[in-house]
Amino acid sequence: MAAYNYTEFDLPTELVPFESFPNYINVGTRGPNFPLQDLHTGEMVEMKNLWSKGFAVIEFGSFT
């Protein structure tokens, strides 16, 4: 967990995933499902429910 939630940003380290991104979960294949927590309700949400009725647009990010 320490490596994921790093305490200091390191540019060379953080550039590595950009190089490998094309090989991550190709378009046309199935995206994995994960449980997520709704910020406001505190309830757990299954990611797959987002795309159960149509398209899901999922932006990943953080405040910083």
Partner: peptide, 29 residues
């Protein structure tokens, strides 16, 4: 929606800081 503390979804989808994915019915990217 909050990912887990360990970033399970984030790491599975490529761990980039501001990526976007569109996923269709049946989970197809």
């Amino acid at each position: 929606l909050l990912d887990t503390l360990e970033g399970d979804a984030h790491r599975a989808y490529g761990v980039l800081p501001n990526m976007t994915w569109i996923i269709g019915r049946g989970g197809i990217v």
